[in-house]
Design a protein around this nucleic acid. Structure first.
Lengths: 230, 230
DNA sequence: CCTGCACATTAAGATTTCGTTAAGACACCA
DNA sequence: TGGTGTCTTAACGAAATCTTAATGTGCAGG
């Protein structure tokens, strides 16, 4: 794995020391800032892979820092806070933070959170950031041009069928629940039961089944559906 | 590993002696109390890592002690009960005890139970933060994608079987009573009998037994089931 | 040695959930 | 307005799952 660069925004010197030493020992590269303004600037100029952000900063509210950064970057942000209150946690997460660490925290926990973010990052990279082309068996999806082909022949999918297929493809190997799928396709409105979903699945399968991947999409009775990786 | 502190709550002096000496020989630190009130107080003040609790105490019912402690702490509790107290044993487990030991017990068994709890503790620490993946022997459960594999081959579980497995896995090492399991699986509604539970256990074991971990799930006659950590 | 108890396992009927087809509703566009 | 394509709903046979009953096994007590 290439170098993983972490930006620490923290004004308490002893905690800054603890974190920076821990990161260094564990092979991470890091940048540091002791106030919100510098943190935002460093983030803009150095594009870190992860930000550790203390909420209690001298110049800006931590929430502000998150909002500012989120206007242009999706860099994962792990918040560190002395305040263990739920409200703060929710505010931070709602503003776009990815995870939350309450002081005092153990070094092991910090590293675990960082690994978790790395895993998530790696995962979503494989899923969305690459190629913009998805291939699985005879199925090929070009997200950029919204083109779906089986064995090279183009398929004509209706909007809902396409959404469904994308959803399954973005989660290959995962079992998606009925409610999750319905929520993602029809928005969180209450409507459209499972029955509709079944009809679309039938349509989709019919169109896909032009090859012999009859088993590309599997049913989990009582649970949902799953596209399996071939 | 740092020191492991065990609180013994037992009024029988000879058993207290046996246990304390055993623990000392095996490198554990221990505290002792000879009644429920003292036990609760010591637990509150000294934060032991494990509690060995005799159900038959002079001042309080053992169940009361468990309930009291459980209002603020998740400290593992291993119950010690005299023979013929099956009902009490079940009540204790339902109230939040983790395991039980029947008098007379061997020193080896006592130590084994303690080690089991230690293992479980260590595991849940590692697990609670991140990893939506559970592993035990050849069994692997990916909660996020609802995928269960044995030796790498995917298992197809029915909804109830899956729920059952998850319940056991989330409580590895802990003995779950029949009523607790039934309550968790079928909701607190009326009683789908123990008989049904047995049928599902049979089905689950059949599917799991594709490896040779025939003993992954153990039966506690008259009490319930337990997934053991391998 | 027999009996009773708790559990394991299998088989079969009852029930739920699925897949698929077809018909009507709706929106869009010429 | 009529036509086209898409969405939704209903219906029904098929498949999977759940439940119940029946039988088999091991163990403890009389």
């Amino acid at each position: 794995m290439s170098e993983f660069k972490i930006l620490i925004v923290e004004d308490d010197k002893s905690i800054m020391n603890l974190i920076s030493i821990t990161l260094k020992i564990n092979g991470y590269t890091y940048l540091s800032a002791d106030c919100g303004k510098d943190g935002v600037a460093l983030c803009a100029s150095h594009h870190p892979d992860l930000i550790l952000l203390d909420l209690g900063l001298p110049d800006m509210d931590g929430i502000e820092v998150i909002r500012t950064i989120r206007t242009w970057a999706n860099t994962p942000i792990v918040v560190i806070s002395a305040r263990g209150e739920d409200k703060d946690k929710i505010d931070a997460l709602d503003s776009g933070a990815d995870d939350y660490l309450t002081k005092p925290f153990s070094v092991a926990e910090l590293l675990a959170r960082i690994r978790a973010v790395q895993r998530r990052l790696q995962y979503s990279r494989n899923d969305s950031l690459e190629e913009s082309v998805f291939e699985n068996g005879d199925l090929k999806i070009d997200y950029a041009s919204s083109l779906v082909t089986m064995n090279g022949t183009e398929l004509h999918l209706t909007p809902i069928e396409y959404k469904l297929l994308i959803l399954l493809a973005k989660n290959v190997g995962k079992v998606l629940t009925h409610s999750y799928i319905i929520d993602r396709i029809w928005g969180n409105g209450i409507d459209s039961d499972i029955v509709s979903l079944r009809v679309y699945m039938a349509g989709l399968r019919k169109k896909l089944k032009q090859g012999q991947n009859s088993s590309l999409i599997q049913t989990h009775v009582g649970i949902g559906y799953q596209m399996i990786r071939i």
